[in-house]
Design a protein around this nucleic acid. Structure first.
Length: 120
DNA sequence: ATTCTAACA
DNA sequence: TGTTAGCA
């Protein structure tokens, strides 16, 4: 199928589908015309990409994760050696980001509180 | 009619 | 990301 059909079947617009390819998430074949040709499995792949993106992973990480997951019907199961370690590192990165945001929020609360007592 | 690349009020 | 231009 070409990009138009994949777009319709996944709900992801063509612009984004081309972007995913640039990020190494999709590798469609090309017709002599230059048109991208996607395989049936790409419909599933696009949905996986959406799921992984929603999980907060970067496209760089996803490009490594995609070829290393098996679909047991409902969940994505890691199949490669180092993948699990990589995912744990990503989780740690998220934890750090959350902690930094919490710090920023506390700092902001101080400002907000000061502003309230000054203007009220 | 569709897709492609490149680029920008 | 949208959108448009100019092709094939």
């Amino acid at each position: 199928m070409r990009i138009g059909e994949l777009s319709r079947r996944t709900g992801v617009n063509e612009r984004l589908l081309r972007y995913y390819e640039q990020q190494g998430l999709l590798r469609p074949d090309r017709l002599p015309s230059g048109y991208r040709v996607y395989r049936e499995s790409d419909v599933v792949t696009v949905h996986r990409i959406r799921a992984l993106l929603a999980a907060g992973l970067s496209t760089a990480v996803i490009s490594q994760v995609l070829p290393c997951v098996r679909d047991d019907g409902e969940r994505l199961v890691p199949t490669c050696q180092d993948l699990l370690g990589q995912l744990r590192r990503e989780r740690d990165r998220m934890t750090t980001a959350i902690e930094e945001l919490e710090t920023s929020r506390s700092l902001l609360d101080v400002v907000i509180t000061a502003g309230r007592s000054a203007t009220d």
